[in-house]
């Protein structure tokens, strides 16, 4: 008996058939899995939860696992959803309501926001104001930057340049302000949260 044997010395007839099919199928499977992976990723990132504010008549799909604040101490908004994991800035979507006159249009509200901005936000700088639509409604959208600074003197937090968008629509004698704010560096990457929100918001 031989001390050792090699499989390549075996009868070639015993080699597996269809390796080519297997290889092609492997590539196809991997591509399919990767495609599915991208879908899973996107769906996970875009996963939402329904939030309904019956008092103010606003319903929207908010990103899942974002922290929802519907009882602000200072009453400056009706609810806000915040991404608690965001670094360096906690991205948030916020809805606020201001009472307006019968003849008010979104631009009036934007102008008011624009006046208040420098008082509320550090180094507030508006980059664009444009007319747009939200569903069937006329809306005005303002895009701005400001610097977010930590006011607790014991924390060494670097200031963050924040990009913000306020979108205003008029509902009877109320102006609804939909706000999205994120670190300028990641704004484009995360803006889909706001787009998804605007696509689903009912008011």
């Amino acid at each position: 008996m031989r001390a050792f044997d090699r499989f390549d010395e075996l009868d070639q007839q015993s080699l597996p058939q269809g390796t080519q099919v297997n290889s092609l199928l492997a590539i196809a499977t991997v591509l399919a899995m990767l495609g599915l992976g991208v879908v899973i990723r996107n769906n996970t990132l875009a996963a939402t939860t329904v939030y309904e504010d019956r008092i103010n008549g606003v319903t929207a799909q908010l990103p899942a696992n974002w922290l929802i604040d519907a009882e602000p101490e200072d009453q400056t908004y009706i609810f806000r959803a915040t991404d608690t994991g965001g670094i360096p800035f906690k991205t948030y979507i916020q809805v606020s309501i201001v009472t307006v006159g019968a003849d008010a249009n979104p631009r009036n509200v934007i102008d008011a926001l624009n006046v208040l901005g420098p008082a509320r936000l550090s180094i507030y700088h508006v980059v664009s104001i444009e007319e747009t639509r939200l569903g069937d409604d006329v809306a005005t959208r303002i895009t701005y930057f400001y610097v977010d600074t930590e006011e607790n003197p014991f924390l060494e937090t670097e200031p963050t340049v924040v990009e913000g968008v306020d979108l205003v629509v008029i509902r009877r004698n109320q102006a609804l302000i939909f706000t999205f704010r994120d670190a300028a560096a990641t704004f484009e990457e995360n803006e889909f949260y706001f787009r998804n929100f605007l696509e689903t918001v009912e008011y």
Binding site: P16, N22, L25, A26, T29, M33
Partner: peptide
């Protein structure tokens, strides 16, 4: 190796990749 040496079904490699993953 088994693909080359053994008798395997047509989904052997896809299955292997999936299993490893």
């Amino acid at each position: 190796a088994e693909l080359l040496i053994g008798r395997v079904p047509f989904f052997w490699l896809p299955f292997g990749l999936f299993l490893a993953s």
